[in-house]
Amino acid sequence: MKISPIGGCQETLCIKVPKVYDWVTRQADIFRTFNRQTGLDELDFECTNGFTPEADPCLILNGGNGNSTLGINCDNLNVECIITDAFGNPVDPEADNGIICKEITDPRNRESFEFTLNGETVTLQKVKVLKKGFFRIQVSNGNGVVCISAPQSFATVEKFYLCAPRGTTLQCHITDFQCEAVLCCRDDGTFEQVDVSINMCQNIQMEAIVKLEITADFCQPRQEIPFECPPLQVPPQCPEVFPGS
């Protein structure tokens, strides 16, 4: 339904809006490996059966007793990678501040470089962007015993060449986030290693607040669709039994 503007005519308006100076997308990949006793100490697992600290999820969840002949096994336990804050509380990695994403270059003094694009010389600025967060590794065997690690940090710094003149600020949004972990146990049923793979898509924008003059119509709310309460539904009478004759 078309809505007529208040006053019935257009006006010249001055509005304040964020202007996008540049916008790119890129996938970031982060890998971490925790090996043998050093990695096990770093992960610092706690298990629901009370085997803490320095709990070994391979021994506890596989029931290893030093006589196993399974060899290196990475398939028989359920392993999850959970994104958390620094205190180990789960967070949504795609929510604001779920993953820290910020510029670490001085926005007042970004270095400029010249590039040739489509036969023309353009000047772009180098912007360094930090992504960092935390994760925990949770391992279970389907029998009600769960081992979960202490929070572990991850971080990566990337360079972007963007139209980022002085006065613009970085806007970073994380999308399509995945964290996967694989646990491998040794042939004696003890911990071998955990491999963690983190993949995220990032929208990187350079923005600045600007004031624009536009010609536009004022708008007003639409007419609300009327709502009427339906009549009360009275259950049918039972004339055969009530009221009695």
Score class of each variant (00 low, 15 high):
1 M>W: 07
4 S>F: 00
12 T>N: 15
14 C>Q: 15
21 Y>V: 10
21 Y>Q: 12
26 R>T: 13
30 I>A: 09
31 F>D: 08
35 N>Y: 14
35 N>D: 13
37 Q>M: 08
51 F>Y: 10
52 T>P: 06
52 T>I: 11
57 P>Y: 03
59 L>D: 09
64 G>L: 06
69 T>I: 10
70 L>I: 02
70 L>R: 10
77 L>D: 07
82 I>H: 03
85 D>M: 08
94 E>P: 00
96 D>E: 08
98 G>K: 04
101 C>S: 08
102 K>H: 01
105 T>I: 09
117 L>R: 06
117 L>E: 10
120 E>C: 06
128 K>A: 10
132 K>I: 00
139 V>H: 06
145 V>N: 03
146 V>Y: 03
146 V>Q: 08
151 P>F: 05
157 V>S: 08
159 K>R: 08
163 C>I: 11
168 T>L: 12
174 I>K: 02
179 C>K: 08
186 R>M: 02
187 D>E: 14
191 F>E: 03
195 D>N: 11
202 Q>G: 03
202 Q>D: 03
205 Q>W: 03
205 Q>T: 01
207 E>L: 12
207 E>T: 12
207 E>N: 07
207 E>F: 00
216 A>N: 15
216 A>F: 05
218 F>N: 13
219 C>S: 13
220 Q>E: 12
220 Q>V: 11
223 Q>G: 07
226 P>Q: 01
226 P>W: 02
227 F>K: 05
232 L>H: 05
240 E>V: 11
241 V>K: 04
